[in-house]
């Protein structure tokens, strides 16, 4: 994109992108730590995730403030306006994803009070696609990459499939032995939060779609364009 005549405007828009990229990096690290704390039964790591969540909340506030400032002082239009609006939405969604990571850390603490349980090994597998979705959705935002955004959008159905399969495993374990009900319940909650991370990442992809095309996201448009990837 050609630069603005007013350099400070470009710097502010870049800062907006930088803040969101940083939010994304921190959030991915939070997710990794939360899952790791379950697998390693590491209470300290789980508590770290819970306390670090505040950092991401504060970053969201900074994005809000900067976006509001740009709207008031620069009166952005066209692609600039759509970028600022997308930033507000995306930072809100990333903040929500970080909340899910903190939730998973809380279930981690609950699990650690129970005997170790082999079904926890399913979580690192289940989290893989949602992590890729966050990462790719934010790259799609930064590079205004429509194809990547659409690709991310389609990844969510895979997450839903894996989530359902994992639930089946947990139900089977509960039926096999009532002692499993307690840990399985915690894992069920954790898995639900992972599934929600996929949904939120899909929402980011939708925000990127609107930012690039200027049109509200509609699933029927994807089919029409034949842009299924």
């Amino acid at each position: 994109m050609i630069q603005h005549i007013v350099k400070a405007y470009d710097e502010e828009l870049k800062k907006l992108h930088d803040l969101i990229r940083y939010m994304g990096e921190l959030t991915l690290s939070q997710i990794n730590k939360a899952i790791q704390s379950i697998v390693d039964r590491d209470a300290e790591l789980a508590r770290e995730v819970i306390s670090e969540d505040q950092k991401i909340n504060l970053l969201e506030i900074r994005v809000d403030e900067l976006a509001t400032r740009i709207l008031a002082l620069r009166q952005p239009v066209a692609s600039d306006l759509r970028t600022v609006i997308a930033s507000l939405k995306i930072s809100n969604q990333v903040e929500r994803i970080a909340d899910y990571a903190a939730n998973i850390a809380k279930f981690s603490l609950n699990l650690q009070k129970l005997p170790s349980f082999e079904e926890v090994e399913g979580l690192p597998i289940l989290i893989e696609i949602p992590k890729q979705m966050i990462e790719s959705a934010l790259i799609a935002f930064e590079k205004a990459d429509l194809n990547l955004a659409i690709k991310v959008w389609h990844m969510d159905s895979e997450v839903d499939k894996l989530y359902k399969a994992y639930l089946q495993n947990l139900f089977a374990a509960m039926i096999a032995d009532p002692k499993n009900v307690n840990p399985c319940t915690q894992l069920l909650f954790a898995a639900k939060n992972i599934e929600r991370i996929g949904d939120q990442s899909q929402n980011i992809a939708e925000a990127v779609y609107t930012m690039i095309t200027g049109k509200p996201f509609q699933e029927s448009d994807l089919a029409k364009n034949g842009s299924k990837i």
Binding site: M1, I2, H4, I5, V6, Y9, P76, V77, A78, D80
Partner: peptide, 11 residues
Amino acid sequence: RTQGYITGRYG
């Protein structure tokens, strides 16, 4: 060109 002009990127 419209995009460039209204967003202040017109050179």
